[in-house]
């Protein structure tokens, strides 16, 4: 892993403070999350205190500090989806997975996040499961969907 990190760091030879966010984004894209090791290393690289980097990263919703689940669900909670009942989808997923948005289930299988408008308002509520969109989602469909996904992971 640390070699990957070095490859990414090399791209930012100058190592300026304004590179911090793109750097974190790239590392997260690569690693799936920001590990403490990565944060400390970036700190050394940019000459910034770990405190500052952690403070910055926790400000923004997109950064995560634990690996996401094998199945990552995004639920749209934009205005349209809200009007079409996305709240019940969120409640249902919370109930089914037992974790809060942005967290991963203990078995590492599921994580989900709540986002705003995905751009498919007239087909709401919209959710996205590992890159695949589902439209007009109803809360009742979720247990079945999650069961199916679980089956897929377990037989992978």
């Amino acid at each position: 892993m640390s070699t990957d990190l070095d490859i990414i760091l090399k791209k930012y030879k100058q190592g300026k403070r304004e590179d911090l966010i793109p750097l974190l984004q790239e590392i997260q894209d690569d690693l799936g999350y920001l590990s403490e090791e990565a944060i400390v290393k970036i700190g050394g690289f940019l000459g910034l205190s770990t405190t500052k980097i952690y403070g910055l990263a926790t400000f923004y919703d997109r950064f995560r500090f634990l690996p996401s689940g094998k199945i990552q669900i995004s639920i749209c909670h934009g205005t349209s989806c809200f009007l079409n009942g996305s709240q019940s989808i969120i409640n249902k997923i919370k109930e089914e997975t037992g974790v809060l948005p942005g967290h991963t289930t203990r078995d590492g299988n599921f994580s989900y996040e709540v986002v705003s408008c995905m751009g498919g308002c007239c087909n709401g509520p919209v959710i996205n499961v590992n890159g695949q969109y589902h439209t007009h989602v109803k809360a009742e469909q979720l247990p079945e969907l999650i069961k199916r996904l679980k089956y897929i992971i377990e037989n992978d």
């Binding site: 405190t51 952690y54 403070g55």
Partner: peptide, 26 residues
Amino acid sequence: TSLDFINKGRETHVGAAMDRDFNFSS
């Protein structure tokens, strides 16, 4: 630079690196 704001909005608090306790900090 041992302290910074952590998180945002109502979750904001002041803390040390990785939000660890102070004895680990700089």
